[in-house]
Design a protein around this nucleic acid. Structure first.
Lengths: 226, 226
DNA sequence: AAAATAAATGTAATATTGACAATTAAAAAT
DNA sequence: ATTTTTAATTGTCAATATTACATTTATTTT
């Protein structure tokens, strides 16, 4: 059996959650939109393969990668039986290097409006989205989508976009700051207002130490997560 | 690459969380303790393969199965490269049929004291245990380990065993009953006390409908989950 | 009839969450 | 220079959820 990995690469452009797709260069399905993937090499584990694939496409290393359940339907690949393990990648869209990417005719698409994908890739994307919502409701993963310095309103926008809800600014700010993960910088970002918003950065130590801790970030979590 | 599944089969004997292991009948590692596993067949998905393997060993069908992250180290199997996807299985230990099992020299072991296992199976077990703790803190999965009729004190024992904590009876009872998943029966179980404890059963409809809902079941969830 | 055992139940203190609006800082417009 | 505009920042109160804690009840055994 062939074993592959596919990367569901999420980015955030400040307004919308984005998905990085490529146009397949070979048969079958040449020219059609697809997730970036690749076969696992003899010396690689699955996560290593995913990191390699991601690096090749985006130029970014040390990316947040989370393995999802394998896709194993016997006929999912019409040519030869291929097991694929999808990985969710959270990427700072600003670090994305277009030049490296152009080999693959890659493009960012809005998560709510992306083209038809090959094979079962749409299903992978939807699973990744559901998983991201689940995970981010309790763990501070969404920081991975932001640049190193970011503002509270930017973070709020991100949460509102991922969950498609609007949240109370005051409550959100209180909750996030009470997690004691952020360090306030002596700099403002004036990109979005006259007054400017304070920039923060993650305290990496506390982030790593508290990552596995469970904290309910989303209000009214009376939603169904899968 | 060969692709296999391995089952981490949990059971609950009323006091301890148990793990079902087999003694391997063939080389390599013949005679040593191992998880029950098998290769994925041409017409099978991974979950189907896991269900088949489980049925073969325990005689039980329709089991709660949850896929964990794949184990993919190139040298994890010394003979030939084999990818293995572990599945956590939660089983009502009372339904376990010894006769079917005897072919495999199977045995239940305390989760905190089980023998040396082949390959990376110990790592699989530890991951499954961590995952079970994580999952069960928010989703009512542990019911899968109990018989159809059970008492609140039995359920409490199970939670206390899985999390290795002691919980307040009153708070636990209130929390569980407020989830509105249980139906009180007109029967008592007198196995453990003179007074007897009321038996309950799951309302399957509500269980399925609310399964993905997130509810914090474990008090002081200031624990690190992985 | 008394003792023993485990089951069942309630309440008050505390912590967390949710709802809600006024003030502030800076730039742009007058 | 003053006013206007825009988004950022901040606080309080009410409701809800959680925690800590002890007595009563049903039944069997002595």
């Amino acid at each position: 059996m062939l074993v592959a990995v596919d990367c569901i690469i999420f980015g955030f452009d400040g307004t919308h959650l984005k998905l990085l797709l490529i146009q397949r260069a070979f048969q079958p399905e040449a020219g059609n939109w697809s997730l970036m993937g690749g076969f696992v090499q003899p010396d690689e584990t699955l996560p290593k393969a995913a990191a390699r694939v991601l690096k090749k496409l985006t130029g970014i290393a040390d990316v947040y990668l989370e393995e999802l359940s394998a896709f194993s339907h016997p006929e999912r690949d019409p040519i030869e039986r291929t097991l694929s393990v999808p990985f969710t990648a959270l990427v700072d869209i600003q670090q994305y290097e277009t030049q490296i990417t152009d080999d693959y005719h890659a493009g960012w698409f809005d998560i709510n409006k992306y083209p038809k994908l090959i094979f079962d890739h749409r299903e992978m994307v939807e699973k990744a989205k559901a998983r991201l919502r689940y995970k981010a409701a309790f763990h501070p993963v969404l920081f991975e989508l932001l640049p190193a310095k970011f503002t509270i309103p930017q973070l709020l926008n991100l949460y509102e976009e991922v969950y498609d809800i609007s949240m109370d600014k005051r409550n959100f700010s209180r909750k996030i700051l009470s997690m004691d993960l952020l360090e306030k910088l002596n700099e403002k970002d004036k990109g979005n207002s006259k007054k400017g918003a304070w920039l923060y950065r993650l305290n990496k130590k506390k982030y790593k130490a508290n990552f596995h801790k469970v904290a309910s970030i989303i209000p009214n979590p009376d939603i169904h997560y899968s």
